[in-house]
Design a protein around this nucleic acid. Structure first.
Lengths: 341, 341
DNA sequence: CAGCTTTCCGAAAACGATTTCGGCGCTTTA
DNA sequence: TAAAGCGCCGAAATCGTTTTCGGAAAGCTG
């Protein structure tokens, strides 16, 4: 009738619960004969150990927490997928919580997860997180944690990142190689590391190819919206010399692209447009948008694998050297950029 | 030092664990004086009850399971968000698992969640799920479950759906009202209820407005891809009379839209295009795509609320009449459709 | 003051699984 | 034959909380 337990199996076989438990887990001090008997009953009743009891006894939940800035976002939902699948393979389930880019909810959700005794945490910092006490506290408590995507160098743990600078460098280089002489950059807000790194990659590429950096054709978008992109497109068009645009992210890039098209600019003949992130929509604009692919799925996988290392290290009481892994990016060339000669 | 427990508080105050527990939970048989003393210590040590022990004792996990066809999808990730936030308000956390539209993984993941003793389940059926034994078993076990989006009428439980038929009716009606005389429909595969319902809504709208149904301008897309849409656009263009298209989903609709534009068709002057779902990208095509908005967030919220009812009903041993809630949709009119006179 | 009700608290039994420790009975060895 | 060894199993503590039941002490009545 009700759920089978060790006790019931034990009573049925005239054994003690301890013996049954050990038989199931193949302890060497149980004879093969009783092991067989026990396993037969286990099979028959399709016994599954009670997770609540296991959790309490073993002091582990086999659950990890994943804090994500916004789930409604192609890149991030891919991360969720990568984490979940990697975790499942090792017998872990995942609780996902949004920080909505807010420091307060980040803290609140971190607390919620700690309260639930998650075995580990995966965290991407909210944009307005500038104090890290809540995180160092967690580390001090000994809870395994891995940072991904938006990280900080202020503390020591495993990290997984996109090499934004290198990716931006390559994107800009591609524009140069395809003949662009005056390449504008549309960047995001000042603070987040990602916007800074992409800007630096852009700058480095110019420098390495002897194109002088021109501050006046670096546009800053505060809101990073599609409409913002359109508005910036207008300003770009006014500057007759610009023949290439590298945008901080696809949302902006697509706004710029559509904006330019609507103003009658020929893409890519007159202006090449390059985005960043490989959002789903980039395939569907016309012309389709060249961009940089960030593999969220892979990032999620790697992040979990590192976390798993931490968890094991904690169990076995070993200290780990913390590393920072870079997930490679790749250019996805579509029709918004000219082909190199 | 280590985590505070009831025992430690009890020892410190020379009380028994039972008393401390009851003091914290404001049992009437504890004097106000001891309650105060206990609560002071609780505050001081910032005691949090151990969830593992609570779970075991109370036989509840305060976790619900959410099975979703594909998380990497605007509509579904909004559902995740709606569920998570509603659950959080009631003290529940959510474990999200993908079925990837496969019957086998749906079963596997359901099992995984049951094993973890989730307090309830939210499920959207995979497309190729045709047997329901695994679900009726769960219902028989007494696990609260609510079906959302892709449901089946084969068994009795709370359900939350979009009224696809009505929504499709309204979308088609809008095309008719704006002057379209020959409206094509691009539908998905035969089986899923959603594609059938949308098709029926389309048909009904034609009938109510005395437009004869023409089987030859109903196109079926097996893969439901952007490229499929483009290919169908080609076929639509060949049929000189078609002046309106209602597509099963935005992905197809955008493929059709872009396909038609590339073939030189003027949108919406020559052909109006209407999508379904209000994907993010619909704002960004040119022209932007008119569509039907499905509010995933709201659906997620409602689904959890119903599940919560079930959970409470189970606790209090009451039987519920099961209902099916319809989440309203709305037309989002952009530039791919003519304005009604 | 006997008998009664309150008021307040403690003991202890759950919830199930895990693991240590010890011990019984049998075999081996000197 | 006594000592030592080994194979096999059980008892019991433990994880931390919840809740029932009972009982001691205090207050109240007639």
């Amino acid at each position: 009738m009700s759920k089978p337990t060790l006790k019931k199996i034990a009573e049925r076989l005239n054994l003690s619960v301890g013996t049954v438990s050990k038989a199931i887990k193949d302890y060497p001090d149980i004879s093969d004969k009783t092991k067989e008997k026990v396993k037969a009953v286990v099979e028959e009743l399709s016994y599954k150990p009670n997770k609540f009891a296991q959790n309490l006894r073993n002091q582990e939940s086999k659950i990890i927490g994943l804090i994500i800035p916004q789930i409604v976002h192609h890149f991030f939902s891919n991360i969720v997928l990568g984490v979940t699948e990697a975790a499942e393979k090792k017998g872990y389930l995942v609780i996902v919580l949004e920080s909505t880019e807010s420091y307060e909810t980040e803290m609140k959700h971190l607390d919620l997860l700690i309260e639930r005794h998650v075995d580990g945490l995966l965290l991407s910092l909210a944009d307005n997180t500038i104090k890290y006490n809540h995180i160092t506290e967690i580390i001090d408590q000994g809870v395994p944690i891995v940072l991904y995507d938006k990280i900080s160098k202020s503390f020591d743990c495993h990290k997984v990142v996109i090499d934004d600078k290198k990716a931006a460098y390559n994107a800009t280089k591609y524009l140069i190689d395809s003949g662009c002489k005056k390449i504008a950059h549309v960047r995001g807000p000042l603070k987040p590391q990602t916007t800074v790194d992409r800007f630096l990659g852009y700058k480095d590429a110019l420098k390495d190819h002897h194109i002088s950096f021109d501050k006046s054709i670096v546009f800053e978008s505060e809101k990073i919206s599609f409409d913002d992109g359109k508005e910036i497109a207008h300003r770009i068009k006014k500057n007759k010399n610009i023949d290439g645009v590298f945008a901080f992210t696809d949302l902006l890039a697509s706004g710029i692209l559509i904006g330019l098209v609507q103003e009658g600019v020929k893409i890519p003949e007159e202006i090449s447009v390059m985005g960043f992130s490989n959002w789903r929509l980039t395939k569907m604009t016309s012309p389709s948008l060249s961009t940089v692919n960030q593999c969220g799925y892979e990032m999620g996988q790697k992040a979990f694998e590192l976390l798993y290392e931490e968890i094991i290290a904690k169990k076995t009481n070993t200290k780990l050297k913390h590393k920072t892994i870079e997930i490679p990016t790749e250019l996805v060339i579509r029709n918004s950029t000219k082909k190199p000669a």
